[in-house]
Design a protein around this nucleic acid. Structure first.
Lengths: 347, 347
DNA sequence: ATCCGTCGTCGAAGCGCTTCGACACTCGGC
DNA sequence: GCCGAGTGTCGAAGCGCTTCGACGACGGAT
């Protein structure tokens, strides 16, 4: 009496398909992978059997034999102050793009620390990693180099040699905002940026935007201040009041914090400054958000979808051992809304 | 001349560990799984070798041999109008809890449709599924029954027989809000709920909250209206103005839409109605959010963390073939803030 | 007719792990 | 001194798939 026999899983296996189609197991495999020529006739017979039996290849077996899990990791730190909706947009773009490349996405937060990345990578649970919310001096960067698996960063650390990074060109975005304001005659502008904690830990996009704003202001010889900006209404209110107390002649605002946009508008209203008559506002934020605000904001959208797609396709290229550029910065595009106007001619 | 020899992966295998420790492969396996007794001495020797070699078990091989991937799927539809931050909170709670149970999380959006769920489940990529944003008549529910893998719903469909569901008791939450207002003497209340689209597709939590609000109002014989509520400021403003035009004697507001809270406050301010002197506001939303609003809101927090943890632990129980309750509803707790007060005695 | 190159298919050897039965041992009870 | 019941360890058989080499069959060139 057989003896060992573990119970069969219930799911049909490739052997079942082969038997049903009257071909060898390897033939079924080649039909599925397309790695060898198979006659039209055989292919159709096999495909019919597959459909009939409801066959789905076993992921574990496939990963084991092919040394490819067809899964990529999405590493999301989920720190305080991150812009949740933007992150979510990235995540969905990544999942969707990955599926187009026949890969699935494993979600990793960082609270397991470096050990988590090791476990995942060394255990061959994933073929490659996508790392989000990158800091200028990110501790994960050296780690990535030791993992022995391809990775792509969404964001740009200070030192990008040997890496593959994708992001919006936030430096340029900051410049573009200021230039737009300058073109409209504004001579004193302010950046209301990310929460202080985000700058403190050296998050790339915040620093780069600030640098861009300040650089453009300097070049055009306009006065500029950059302020961090928390996300709750009371804080924002205080900031704005304070800003206009110190610099009453401020007429241009760059806001890089979608959560702060509403409160900023409210605060300006409370100060009796109208948008755009008295103060022009440019936002760096997801497009949807800016579009539904009222007035419709002049903005530099963060193209989360594009970036996510790019990131995935770069990672796929690396998985296929193709060379990839170290840094891919998407050019910012400024969309004019109703929140900016020429500066009012002095009384 | 070996011949076949594929290149070795580079990662040490269990065989390497066994050789290094001078034991059999199976012994290493038992040290790792604890499924058979191993002497202290041997265990330590093996563990030392593991650490020394930097061994991590290959996930695919393990999944194949044990028929357990140690991965669960998190199914997020990501439809319009979902409350992104809440969803994100769930997601991170799920990932964290899953790790505690030695599982990883595969992120699935629904844009691949039912086929995606089949692929994942039949291919044994995951051991079980966690399904979020459940509608009253969710098309995925019958599907889940056919997958042959355990699943847990975060949310509550109309028909929950044979399922396992976890959620906040939103019906009770609605009641609690109204009761709080009634206790403070309010006689006309309104619910500003989720966006219309959310009700239209029959999302459970929105309907259940509305039902709870209306039921409590009826029982306490106070007047109540329930309005859907979009997320952009202009819409909200119109709604609120309209509400008070029709029912100027409204003094209690239940808001179940964190994105709308700010605009609601602004609209009330614009109408010259102060919180809480003229109008009391109770929010159903994540705690963090309510806590940082000003005034600090009276709220029924959505305990995303708890729910996520519960969901995972129920799923783990199902994976272990233990019985689970069909419906687990967490009791709502109302936290008093500064946005509600006794109704002003009529002038 | 013969030879060679292609095409389509097959069989078998793993991939790295878990798990089952077998097989020493040791130890207490009689 | 022997038996039986644990203990601790080993060997081997898969898990379901991919991939490599082999090998007929066929067709065009010689």
């Amino acid at each position: 009496m057989s003896g060992r026999g573990r119970v069969p899983s219930g799911q049909p296996t490739i052997a079942d398909v082969a038997r049903h189609a009257g071909v060898a197991v390897s033939t079924v495999s080649y039909v599925l992978s397309g790695k060898r020529a198979i006659s039209e006739l055989t292919r159709n017979r096999v495909l019919a059997s597959i459909r009939l039996l409801g066959y789905h290849p076993n992921a574990g077996a496939r990963a084991l034999a092919s040394r490819r899990a067809n899964v990529i990791a999405l590493v999301l730190p989920l720190r305080s102050g991150i812009q949740v909706p933007v992150v979510m947009q990235f995540a969905t773009a990544v999942v969707t793009s990955a599926r187009r490349h026949d890969h699935d996405v494993l979600l990793l937060t960082s609270d397991e620390g470096p050990a988590g990345l090791h476990r995942i990578a060394a255990g061959a649970l994933v073929d490659g990693l996508l790392v989000m919310d990158v800091e200028l001096h990110d501790g994960r960067v050296p780690l990535l180099r030791t993992l022995g698996r391809p990775s792509v960063l969404i964001g740009l650390p200070a030192e990008s040699r040997g890496l593959t990074c994708v992001d919006l060109d936030f430096h340029r975005a900051g410049q573009v905002c200021v230039e737009h304001l300058v073109t409209h005659g504004h001579r004193r502008v302010a950046l209301l940026g990310a929460p202080a904690a985000v700058y403190d830990r050296g998050t790339g996009f915040a620093h780069r935007t600030r640098a861009g704003v300040l650089a453009a202001a300097a070049r055009h010889r306009v006065d500029a201040v950059a302020l961090p900006c928390e996300e709750n209404a009371a804080e924002v209110h205080r900031r704005v009041v304070d800003l206009f107390a110190r610099h009453p002649d401020t007429t241009g605002l760059v806001v890089q914090n979608e959560a702060a946009v509403g409160p900023v508008q409210a605060a300006l209203a409370a100060l009796g400054r109208r948008i755009p008559h008295d103060v022009s506002v440019v936002a760096v934020c997801p497009d949807q958000f800016a579009e539904h605000a009222s007035p419709r904001l002049t903005r530099v959208p963060v193209p989360a979808e594009d970036i996510g797609r790019q990131a995935v396709s770069l990672l796929m290229r690396k998985l296929g051992d193709e060379p990839t550029p170290e840094v891919t910065l998407l050019p910012p595009r400024l969309t004019v809304g109703d929140s900016t106007a020429a500066v009012a001619t002095a009384g």
